[in-house]
Nucleic acid binder design. Structure first.
Lengths: 229, 229
DNA sequence: TCAAAAGTGTTAACCATACACCCATGC
DNA sequence: GCATGGGTGTATGGTTAACACTTTTGA
């Protein structure tokens, strides 16, 4: 079967920068390529957009194969379309970035018969295509967005301590934050629900667990409230 | 001549939301379609991406036909790819938005033998395709971005008064601003150079002209300065 | 008893906001 | 002389930033 057009058409792919966080590191999910070009090289999960699916559907379809879970934060990042970015043919890539709760769906080493692995963003291997540029763009976006939208919670388990939340922000923003001011600010927003639950078996005072109240956030946002780090 | 592929390929277009400002209104450049689909309907300037040009080159090429000038602020906005957004075939549109100094290259009514016109954003006609959604997205981006990057100047002539600048911000943000606080803030950033030049033939005290010092901005930004409305 | 992280308030500096009058000019 | 927008300073309240010690727990 083949498809013929009067004018040259580019191929269109989606590529996904999937971020996870595991208590110390911000990580990105990579796939080891089995085929040329860039055979053996690590690269972003992604694939061709089918002719009848939306871009976001394509991204979710590719991800459900890799991460196992469909329910994740997903947002369009940028579209990369330099003529020579793929050596085979003209390929325009619509990049998405996703945030997943690593702790929930435990680090599934490899899925979909692909060789998939999580890499700390500070120690990425050499990537195929222009994927390093895509990761950089995603990191920049994440760093900016985490400050003015409550998306940090997408990287943590449902229940988390304020210490965990603070470390997450410190990791993503690459700067340390004052503990008292951080707590004051976050609790002051009234977006976090304190749970009657505490850490156990820790070699220090057990921290209280909290959870993010999304409904409350949506409610406040309608009244003009803006989240800010 | 024709092009054949093993898999179905979508067509890829760029569509541009070109903003201009004329002392009272924020305006968008529209083109009246000469062909089906949506013949006679107003829509965004744009066209197919050629197989060997980058996305941004395609956007600039389309715009140079419409606006006459190539030198303008241009930034990728978002990629729209719902399967049915074009009735002819699957078309993925990479949208850009541009800011032009209307006053410099005087309102050229129509160019490129197309019927082009500027419409105030508050009075847009019904648009073809999903272009209303694209304009909305562009407006949202412009409103957000104008607050934390000095792009408002792209819509004004090289030399402008503080009153003109304030009215521009009030128009884009759809809110009135306090004159004294506005001046204090803008002048405090030290991004504006006061010129030895004043309005003439105005029926009130002549305002001083200023110009934006981009080099100074880049310099400050490297040292961690962030523009903020 | 030590190490490790949790939890907790106050102060000072800074920034944002609100607000009103005189000035210069053309008609 | 009147209408129009230009230009200017201060006081207040709120927000942010800096800062150190006690508590709890397991090893």
């Amino acid at each position: 079967m083949s498809f013929t057009y009067e004018y040259a058409h580019p191929a269109v792919t989606v590529d996904c920068v999937v971020f996870g966080y595991d208590a110390t590191d911000l990580k990105v999910l990579l796939i080891q390529r089995k085929l040329e070009p860039f055979k053996g090289r690590w690269s972003l999960p992604g694939g061709f957009v089918q002719i009848n699916e939306s871009l976001e559907d394509a991204a979710r379809r590719e991800l459900s194969g890799e991460t196992g879970l469909g329910k994740l934060f997903l947002e369009q990042l940028y579209t990369f379309g330099e003529p020579k970015r793929d050596p085979r043919e003209r390929v325009i890539s619509v990049a998405y970035y996703a945030l997943v709760k690593l702790t929930d769906h435990a680090l599934q080493a490899a899925s979909d018969a692909e060789d998939a692995a999580w890499f700390p963003v500070a120690e990425l291997p050499k990537l195929g295509f222009d994927h390093e540029r895509i990761v950089e763009t995603a990191l920049r976006r994440l760093k900016a967005k985490v400050r003015y939208e409550p998306i940090g919670f997408e990287l943590l388990p449902e229940k988390f301590t304020l210490g965990e939340l603070q470390r997450l922000y410190e990791t993503v923003l690459e700067q340390s934050l004052d503990k008292r001011n951080f707590r004051k600010k976050l609790l002051g927003m009234e977006l976090l629900e304190a749970l009657d639950e505490y850490q156990r078996d820790v070699a220090h005072r057990a921290a209280q667990f909290y959870q993010f109240n999304r409904a409350r956030y949506e409610q406040l946002r309608k009244r003009g409230f803006n989240f800010e780090l």
